[in-house]
């Protein structure tokens, strides 16, 4: 695969190095000449010492035949423009952007960046797993869908509390069959989304004791917590 990495900071450097070691074709763009030389000394002549935001140099770097463009500079606006230029001007099939301000994630996705990596969000998620500040705890995202896995405490009186995990799993299946789709539905995300919708109706109706924001799809629960699939807000 031909991967074009833009930004020769720590992330770009180690990314390019690992990709080269696993046998991929890599070009790294870094506009700072001294830094570019330093990287070239260490991993070879795969470095282009030019600004990867500039259309001319993206073309020179072979952006039009890249399989993946990874924009990993420290500036969100640069990463956005690199991915948009790659996507719309050079028809790159897959663009990946590093996002520093988690608030930019939605905008970037909306503007056509294929994949977003937010170190801030990751660290935040990691901290929040230890210190539950919200009633609904983010556990992870399901790639390629608008769904995320959350943990929610069950309040006393919830119809879901003190249920065995097994019986709750069957309720998840129940949810799916209620949505009117079979498990072998070709559009998995669509079916799970509609399962989430139908589950939202179900859980708001049945579990009066759950926290204020009701779980979207009850998947597994037990020991006073519920793990749920929720449509990302």
């Amino acid at each position: 695969m031909f991967v074009l990495v833009v930004g020769g900071g720590k992330v770009g450097y180690y990314l390019a190095k690992e990709l080269v070691e696993s046998g991929h074709e890599v070009v790294l763009m870094e506009k700072d000449h001294a830094r570019a030389d330093q990287i070239a000394d260490e991993i070879g002549s795969i470095v282009i010492a030019h600004d990867g935001c500039e259309g001319k140099y993206l073309a020179e770097a072979g952006a039009n035949r890249a399989d993946i463009v990874a924009a990993v500079t420290g500036d969100d606006e640069d990463n956005l423009v690199i991915c948009q230029m790659a996507k719309h001007h050079f028809d790159v099939p897959r663009t990946i952007a590093r996002v520093n301000n988690p608030k930019n994630e939605e905008l970037f996705k909306h503007l056509g960046v294929d994949e977003l990596i937010s170190p801030t969000r990751m660290i935040l998620g990691s901290i929040e797993q230890d210190i539950p500040v919200h009633e609904l705890l983010h556990l992870g995202s399901l790639g390629g869908s608008d769904l995320e896995l959350i943990e929610a405490p069950l309040l006393p009186g919830s119809s879901r509390s003190r249920r065995a995990v097994r019986s709750s799993r069957s309720s998840a299946r129940d949810v799916r069959s209620r949505s009117g789709r079979t498990r072998s539905s070709p559009k998995a995300t669509r079916s799970s989304r509609s399962a989430a919708r139908s589950a939202r109706r179900r859980s708001t109706a049945s579990s009066s004791g759950t926290p204020s924001r009701s779980a979207d799809a009850l998947a597994v629960c037990g020991r006073g917590v519920a793990f749920a699939l929720a449509e990302r807000t």
Binding site: C53, D75, D76, E77, D78, L80, V81, Q84, L107, H110, L111
Partner: peptide, 16 residues
């Protein structure tokens, strides 16, 4: 003075 900053600010204004 930054092209990319301008592009991003403008897209934010349009989208959000």
């Amino acid at each position: 003075e930054g092209d990319n900053r301008n592009v991003m600010a403008a897209q934010l204004a349009t989208e959000a």
